[in-house]
Design a protein around this nucleic acid. Structure first.
Lengths: 204, 204
DNA sequence: ATAGTAGTTGACTATCTAGTAAACTTCGAT
DNA sequence: ATCGAAGTTTACTAGATAGTCAACTACTAT
C-alpha cells in the first residue's frame, strides 16, 4: 500500500560512489542527495544519518558481491588457483573502475575503515565484519592448499592474516599512487607469501 | 626584526595530531586553531590553506623522524637485524601512541594518502615522496641481505615493494581493529615474506 | 472510486566553516 | 627611545551543512 520508491537504493549507490571516489569526510548529505536525485527530506525519511546510510549501503553491496567471491573461492577450484583467479579478478576490477573514473580506487572498505576507525563506531564494526569475511576465504583456501601439500602453512589463520595485510596494502598503495601497475605483482607476491613454488620463477 | 612566534610550529603539531587521531576531512581549520591555541588570523598569516599546512607539517615531521630510521637501517647493522629492530620500534611506537590516545593509529601517512588520493594533489605528492623514502630503507637492507646470502632476493626492489605493502597493510589493519596485537606478527611475517629462516620456527 | 498509507517536496532554522581585513601589539635594530 | 617589521586579535561576511516540518502527491488494496 502507498507509493513505491527506489530512493533508498539510489541513495545507497550514491553514497558508495562518493565515499569510494572521495572520502567519507568529504561526502556530505547534500552531495549524496544531489547525486542520487533525491531530496533531503526523502533522505531523512529513509535514513537517520550519513553513517546509517553508509552502513546500509556497505552491507547491501557486500550481499551483492558475495556470490562472486563464493565462486572465486569455491572449494571445487584447486586452492592456489583460487588465489590466481582472485588476483586476476582484482586487477580487472580495478582496471574497469579506472577507465570509468580515471582513478584507481583500491578496496572500498579498507581506506574507509582507516578513515573512520576512531569515530563512527557502528560503521567501523560493519566494515570490520565484512573484512573478516574476506579473511575466511583466504584461510579456507590456505588450509586446503596445506592439506594438499601445495604449501607449508600449519597455521592457516596466521598465513591468511599475512596475505590479507599484503593485499590490502597493495590495493591501497595502488590507490595512493593512482597506478594500476602496482597490482601486476599481486599474483607473484601472493605465491611468494604463501611460499608456493612459482612456475618458472627464480625462487631457489 | 619584529616579534618572534612559535605559532607556525604549534599549528603544524596540531594538524598532525588531529589528522592522525581523526582524519583529514574531519579536521577543520577552526579545530586546528583551537588545538594550537592560535587565532585564525594567525593561521592565515602563516599558511594559505589546510592543505598547505598539512604539507608543511608532514615534511617537518619527516625531517624530524629521519635520523631514527637512519639509525634503525644503518648499514652497520646486519641486514635482517635492521628489520627486527624496525618491527620492534614500530610496535613500541604504536603502543606508546595507544597509551596516550587510547587508540592504535597506524602509519600517519598511509591512511591520509588513501583519503586524499583523489583530491589534494600537492599533499598527495608529498606523502608519496616520503613513503618512497621509506621503501628505500627496505630495498637497501634487502639488497644487503641478499648479498650476504641471508635471503634469496635477486630483485630487491620488488621484494621491498612487497614488504612495504605488507607493513602498511598490517599497520592499517591494527588501526582499523584498534588492536595492537595485530602487530605482534610483524616480525614473523617479515621474515616469512623475506624468505628468511626463522630461529626455531616451524617453516619446513 | 476512493481511502489511507508510503513516499515526496520545498522552505525553513541553526550552526559550522572558510576566508578577510583593519586595528592593534610586541620586539629587534638602530 | 623609537620606528618599523613581524605577528596577533577581533569582528565580520558569505556560503555550506545538518536537520526539521507540514503540506503535498501517487499508488495500491479494497
Amino acid at each position: 500500500m502507498g507509493r513505491v520508491s527506489d530512493a533508498r537504493e539510489k541513495l545507497m549507490n550514491a553514497v558508495r560512489e562518493l565515499i569510494w571516489t572521495g572520502s567519507y569526510g568529504s561526502t556530505t548529505i547534500d552531495h549524496i542527495c544531489e547525486r542520487a536525485g533525491v531530496k533531503k527530506g526523502s533522505f531523512y525519511y529513509f535514513f537517520e544519518s550519513k553513517a546509517d546510510l553508509a552502513v546500509a549501503a556497505i552491507d547491501a553491496e557486500w550481499q551483492r558481491r558475495r556470490p562472486e567471491l563464493d565462486s572465486l573461492f569455491s572449494p571445487s577450484v584447486p586452492p592456489l588457483e583460487r588465489f590466481r583467479k582472485y588476483c586476476d579478478y582484482s586487477y580487472r576490477f580495478q582496471d574497469e573502475i579506472r577507465s570509468k573514473c580515471g582513478c584507481v580506487l583500491g578496496c572500498p572498505l579498507f581506506a574507509l575503515g582507516a578513515e573512520v576507525s576512531t569515530r563512527e563506531d557502528r560503521l567501523q564494526k560493519k566494515i570490520q565484519e565484512i573484512l573478516d569475511y574476506k579473511g575466511m576465504y583466504f584461510e579456507s583456501a590456505i588450509r586446503d592448499a596445506h592439506a594438499a601439500g601445495l604449501i607449508h602453512a600449519p597455521d592457516a589463520a596466521a598465513k591468511a592474516r599475512m596475505l590479507f595485510a599484503y593485499y590490502e596494502g597493495l590495493l591501497t598503495q595502488a590507490r595512493i599512487q593512482n597506478d594500476i601497475a602496482v597490482l601486476r605483482e599481486m599474483e607473484t607476491g601472493t605465491m611468494s607469501v604463501l611460499g608456493a613454488a612459482e612456475a618458472g620463477a627464480a625462487t631457489k
